[in-house]
Design a protein around this nucleic acid. Sequence first.
DNA 1: TAATATAATTAGGCGCGCCTAAAATTTTTA
DNA 2: TAAAAATTTTAGGCGCGCCTAATTATATTA
Lengths: 219, 219
Amino acid sequence: MSTTSEENYIKAIFKLSHELKTEATTSSIAEHMATKASSVTDMVQKLADKHLVNYIKYQGVTLTPKGEKAAIKMVRKHRLWELFLYQKLGFKWNEIHEIAEELEHIKSDVLIERLDKFLNYPQKDPHGDPIPDRKGHFPENKSFKLSQLSKGVKGIVVGVNDKSSVFLAYLDKVGIQLGTELEIIDCNEFDNSLDIKVNDSKLIHLSYQAIQNILMIEK
Amino acid sequence: MSTTSEENYIKAIFKLSHELKTEATTSSIAEHMATKASSVTDMVQKLADKHLVNYIKYQGVTLTPKGEKAAIKMVRKHRLWELFLYQKLGFKWNEIHEIAEELEHIKSDVLIERLDKFLNYPQKDPHGDPIPDRKGHFPENKSFKLSQLSKGVKGIVVGVNDKSSVFLAYLDKVGIQLGTELEIIDCNEFDNSLDIKVNDSKLIHLSYQAIQNILMIEK
DNA sequence: TAATATAATTAGGCGCGCCTAAAATTTTTA
DNA sequence: TAAAAATTTTAGGCGCGCCTAATTATATTA
C-alpha cells in the first residue's frame, strides 16, 4: 500500500521523465513538488526499497515497470475525476485540478472502474489530455501546437499544455475552449504572435506564449 | 483547517453523544475508534485548544457549537457520497460505507454543494438515514423499530440501525431493502422473533436482533 | 471511610514526512 | 587538472498521531 505522499512523488517523477521529457533529478523533483532536496532523497530511498524506482546515489531516478504502472494509474484516476467534476458537477476547467488532486488518492479500485463506466469510458479529460484505460494504455493523441500552424489554416482546439487556472480562465475570456475552431489570419514575425479568427466570427490576438500552450488538429 | 484524524474524532464524539445517546468518555471514544485511551486524551486536548470540544480533565467530552457544526458537516458529506456511490455508480448498500469514509474528508465546500445539487437535494441516504442540509438541519425522521410493530400490521422499511456489511447483505438475501412492505404475521414470544410476509408474497422469519435494527413507518 | 478497582492522564518512545546545516560527491571553470 | 561551484546525501531535529508503561484521579465496596 502506498501513502498519499509516495503517490505524489511517483506522479512527479512520471511527469518529469515522460511529459516534460526532462531528467528526474533530486533537485528537479524538489522544485516540482515545492519541497527540499533532502526530503526528496529520503523519499526516493524509500521508493527504491519498495522497488518503485531505480535509484543510484548521486545519479537521479527512473521509474521501474511497477512504478510506471502506479504512476499511470494515478494519471487515470486524476483525469477521470476531473472529467466527473467538469461534466457531471458543472465545474469550470480551471477549477477541477485542485479537487482532483485530492480525489485521486481515494484507494478503491472498483470505484475507479465504476466511475469510468459512469462517464462512458471517456478517452479525454476536460483539458484534452488522454485518459489511460484500465490496462494503462493511452489513446493516441495526434495533436500539435497552435504555434506550428501556418497562415490561412483552420484547426480545432483539442487540448492545452498549460493547465494553470489563470491560463484556462484567460482562454475562457477570449472564447476558446475544446472544440473551438480557429483560423490563422496573420502571423506577426517580430514577436511570433498570431491574429486569429474564433469560430468564424470574433478576431483575437494571441501571444507566442499562449499559442505554444494550445493544442490543435487541422480541420 | 482540520486533519483527517481530527475529523474522525469529531465524528465519533458526535455519534456517541447524539446517535447512541451515550456519554463520550475517553474510553468509549477509544473503543469506538479502535484506538487507545491515551491517544484519545492527546487528541481531545488538541480539539479543546481549537475550541471544538469542551473538555475538563477526568470528566468526558462534549462538542462545542463549532464542533457540532463540523460534525454535522461530516455526516452530510458522508451520506451524500454514499448516495452518489449507490445511485450513480451502482454500488450495493453494504459496499458504500468504507469508500465514503475516505471521500468525506475531501476538503472543498463547493464540491459538496455541487454534489448535493447533482443528486437533487436528497433527504435520505441509501440506509434511510437523514441527510442534513447546507445549514445543518436534519429532515424529520419519524420512523420506529420493526420490533415495535404488532401482529397484523403492515409497514414500509425506511431505514436500518445496523449499517454493517454483513447485516445489509443478509437483508438483501431475505429480500428486504428500503421501500419493502412487511406484514407482521406472527410474534413468537419466547424469543421475540417475528414471522413476516415480504411484499405480500414470501414468508420469512427474523430474529429479535434483526427486527431491532430495521426501521419502519406504518402503511 | 479506608482499601481496592477502574478510568484517565502523563511520560516517554516510535515511524512518517518534512526541515536545516554539514559533509560528500560530481560538475564546471580557470 | 586543480580549485571552485553546484548538486546530492547524511545527520540530527521537529510535529503529528499513535503506542506502552507508569502515575494520578475517581468510583466502588468492604
